[in-house]
């Protein structure tokens, strides 16, 4: 259903220990709300991303439950605290069972 789903992540590449870093994520997805109708008056079935998570070295940063009221191409900005070098793991869960993943490395020194 959802085609050409491309996750994009912007996170700093380096930081000092204990820094709070700002992370921005965007994923291209139609987020069909299930409220709209097509030209023949039939309801277009809901097809959204229903959950987004971000972990840093296995520790949870944020876990968001999305409802149809989230806009097309869901965008999130949030903060993470980094104490050591590691990898951010981003995961999006689609209604159709698809899972989209992206990672970002950060060097902390």
């Amino acid at each position: 259903m959802a085609e050409n789903v491309t996750p994009r992540v912007r996170a700093p590449r380096e930081a000092a220990p204990g820094d709070v870093v700002s992370i921005r994520t965007l994923i291209s997805h139609p987020m069909e709300s299930g409220q709209r109708r097509d030209g023949d008056g039939n309801i277009i079935p809901r097809s959204i991303i229903n959950r987004f998570t971000c972990d840093f070295n296995g520790e949870n940063v944020i876990d968001v439950t999305l409802e149809p009221a989230i806009s097309t191409n869901p965008y999130f900005q949030f903060d993470a605290v980094v104490n050591e070098s590691g990898t951010f793991q981003f995961t999006w869960y689609d209604d159709d069972g698809s899972v989209y993943e992206e990672t970002a490395d950060i060097a902390v020194a």
């Binding site: 972990d55 070295n57 940063v61 944020i62 876990d63 968001v64 949030f78």
Partner: peptide, 8 residues
């Protein structure tokens, strides 16, 4: 939004 231990 649920914030985990690594949230800044």
């Amino acid at each position: 939004f649920n914030f985990g231990p690594a949230a800044g």
